[in-house]
Design a protein around this nucleic acid. Structure first.
Length: 363
DNA sequence: GTATGCTTTCGGC
DNA sequence: TTACGGCCGAAAGCATAC
């Protein structure tokens, strides 16, 4: 089953200050560029009735809520992380196998402890919901199904505080009428492409020729869409490891394509990222940058180092190099700039020794 | 042709 | 009327090695 917390950030804010319950609550990421510059992170259901959505400009959300007594709050990631940890600890107790996804979702494989019974799974889910309500004062929505793919969609079917059970023989009829973008991996772009192919619902997708899907989307994705449309998925629920990349991105005070101005900002981002990798005791082998231009188009560049590094200066220097290149092939001003490291190596010194050891033989 | 690694873009939350 | 974050992982597309 999949457990998904309802409007997580906004619900935590309601819990912190119950007097705002019943009003539209909009949790925002303020970019700091001007008073209302930034985007909506999450909104409660009262706000959603006014058309407030995640990712929407704050200024637009405010205009939709003018003449309404609404509450706009900045994100408090520290608090949400703390609450998340507590909820995940509670949920873990209900699973044979557990997989956290993001800050507010988790898959629980409960097959063994319910002997494959969907009735018992539903009962277990009700207990988990009560437990979460009692211990964390939060509501969540749960989807129960034979696999992860369908459980995710089932959890979305009834919200908030929902519980949706889709048994094996109900999978096909449950999926068929839903728009294709209910499937993980189908976003705006893929939805548009499918639309032109006459595919609107998951049922349409199921009827579509597999070979044709593979021609259009490639072997991996084409096969995935075909199987997904029929509710076929055998991905195991498994514990996730540590993050494979770490990044920071920030909105610049002003749009610019002045390398010095950009680097002045990204240097600080490098320091933050460097602190994160240092705390985990890792070296990084890849360094990347991200630029969001004034037209909101996104470009990125990355470079793989010869050896894993853990020095801040190497990070800064590589970021410099990459931005220099990126600016040389775009004329647009930059609005946001970011830094990313990945390809982590645990025992950096050993790696270096092995490399030089091999190096001796190559020569 | 297959395997593998690197770069870039896409999409979810 | 316009308005616009900050992360993460997955996969495509390409190059290279064998």
């Amino acid at each position: 089953m999949l457990v998904d917390f309802d409007y997580f950030f906004a619900q935590i804010e309601e819990r912190r200050n119950p007097s705002i319950e019943g009003k539209p609550v909009v949790v925002c990421v303020y970019s700091g560029r001007s008073q209302d510059s930034g985007a909506v992170s999450t909104a409660n259901y009262v706000a959603r009735r006014y058309g407030i959505k995640s990712g929407m400009p704050i200024a637009l959300a405010k205009s939709k809520l003018e003449n309404v007594e609404a509450v706009f709050l900045p994100v408090d990631h520290r608090l949400y992380e703390e609450v998340s940890e507590k909820t995940m600890t509670v949920l873990r107790g209900y699973a044979d196998y557990f997989e956290q996804v993001g800050i507010d979702e988790a898959y629980l494989d409960v097959s063994r402890r319910v002997n494959g019974s969907f009735e018992q799974a539903a009962e277990l889910a009700r207990r988990a919901k009560n437990d979460i309500r009692a211990q964390c004062e939060l509501t969540c929505s749960i989807g129960i199904s034979p696999n992860k793919l369908v459980a995710k969609i089932a959890a979305d079917a009834q919200k908030p505080d929902g519980l949706t059970i889709v048994k094996p023989d109900q999978v096909e009829s449950f999926l068929a009428p839903l728009p294709v973008d209910h499937l993980i991996g189908v976003g705006v772009k893929t939805k548009e492409r499918m639309e032109t192919m006459g595919i609107r619902t998951i049922g349409d997708l199921a009827k579509y020729d597999v070979r044709r899907l593979i021609e259009v989307f490639g072997r991996k994705l084409g096969t995935y869409f075909h199987n997904a449309s029929m509710g076929i998925d055998d991905e195991p629920v498994q514990e996730r490891g540590e993050a494979e990349s770490m990044s920071r991105i920030a909105t610049l005070k002003e749009d610019t394509r002045d390398l010095k101005v950009i680097l002045d900002r990204t240097d600080r981002l490098c320091e933050e990222v460097h602190e994160d990798v240092r705390q985990r005791g890792l070296g990084f082998k890849s360094v990347g940058i991200i630029a969001v231009f004034i037209d909101m188009s996104i470009r990125s560049k990355s470079k793989t180092l010869d050896n894993p590094a853990d020095e801040l200066e190497i990070l800064k220097r590589t970021v410099w190099e990459l931005f220099e290149k990126l600016l040389s092939d775009s004329e647009l001003n930059v609005r946001r700039a970011g830094v990313r490291v990945s390809n982590f190596a645990k025992e950096q010194k050993t790696q270096k020794q092995i490399t030089s050891f091999l190096g001796n033989f190559e020569g």
